[in-house]
Write a protein that binds this DNA or RNA. Structure first.
Lengths: 193, 193
DNA sequence: CTTATGTTTGACACTGATGTCAAACATGGA
DNA sequence: TCCATGTTTGACATCAGTGTCAAACATAAG
């Protein structure tokens, strides 16, 4: 197999992910990706076809990491602690960097959904997966706490709230405020009845 | 005062709003606005200066309408009914049109915040106002229902959830599912303890 | 050492968008 | 009626981005 790729795919996709995190799917051009990865535009076209493909690959990596981190954060002995830890993890991820990068999946849901059905599907799949992770982790915790709604609905509400928090982050709410919002939800879900 | 504007500002800004709703802030070009309003590009530049100005004016109109509708939806005799009616109103607004237009303020928070501080401020102001409306309406309802968190926190959580629902709408969740999410929150907030 | 294979590169032709401007134009007020 | 004032128009120069391609190139396999 002669004629071999000169750049490291993993490094390149990692750098591409950085670019997408910083600029968002829509605002990122092939020019930006070339500059950010150090790989010529023509090579990127040749290797991947275009922006959408590169994004989907980079996003896959991002989603896997995020889900793994979320699952770990949810490993706590009681539901309240698990949820608070989970939201802490999200807030920290969203507010990281300066200027803060926000939540890539939320951003993608909003700005790529209309123009890239595949990106929409990727985000949808990730959110469904996240919902499952939250549900399974919560149902594995037997601490006598029973939300007023069934666990499936609670899990979806939790995922939805992470999206809401991501939006609130974009309009200037700081980490402390975001955690307060999360706390309000967690308290409402786990308050004794 | 001779040399008089040939187009109706109200009609034009209304049409501009339609364009922004359909395409989003970022994807909308002055060309699109000219086509959508029937006013020449040069005239738009002359009258408003540019896209950002037009957007801010159109968004102001949109925000005022949305807030008025929200306040009306919250006029119900008990907290649970008020919140469900409020979320119904939101879901209906987000899912309107085909393809559905989604939530303009959420979209703007995500895609305009980085490139237009004024747009970010406008969205932030609208969300703060919405929070106040929700808070005031809820606190005016004396039905003996007391959420596990204080009303201010509850109001912010409600607003955050509307944002989350707007994102979920973008990745393919239909009105019925969105209402279920809202129901889960409302039930959690208003469940007897 | 050569060859076949796939990769890299810079250039090319295009498209869509921006912001500006002078000239043509319309109209309320003197 | 005529003029001053502000509006409209189409054209212009410019820029950023797209997608493609032939030629130059690197290298694993024979």
């Amino acid at each position: 197999m002669a004629g071999v790729r000169q750049f490291d795919e993993r490094v390149t996709l990692d750098r591409a992910l950085d670019v997408f995190q910083a600029r968002g799917f829509r605002a990122t051009s092939m020019l930006d990706l070339a500059a950010g990865t150090g790989v010529q535009r023509g090579s990127l076209y040749h290797a991947y076809g275009g922006k959408e493909e590169i994004f989907l690959r980079a996003f896959g990596e991002y989603a896997a990491r995020f889900l793994a981190g979320a699952a770990e954060a949810l490993d706590r002995p009681d539901k309240r602690a698990a949820l608070l830890s989970f939201f802490d993890y999200c807030v920290e991820a969203f507010a990281a960097g300066s200027p803060s990068r926000g939540c890539l999946s939320t951003r993608t849901a909003i700005e790529a959904a209309t123009e890239s059905p595949r990106a929409e599907a990727a985000v949808r799949a990730m959110l469904d997966e996240l919902e499952t992770v939250v549900h399974d982790k919560l149902s594995a915790i037997d601490d006598g706490v029973t939300p007023a709604v069934d666990l499936r609905a609670a899990a979806r509400l939790v995922v939805t709230t992470t999206r809401g928090i991501a939006v609130m982050e974009r309009v200037g709410h700081g980490p402390a405020e975001l955690r307060e919002i999360a706390d309000a939800l967690v308290t409402s879900l786990t308050a004794p009845r």
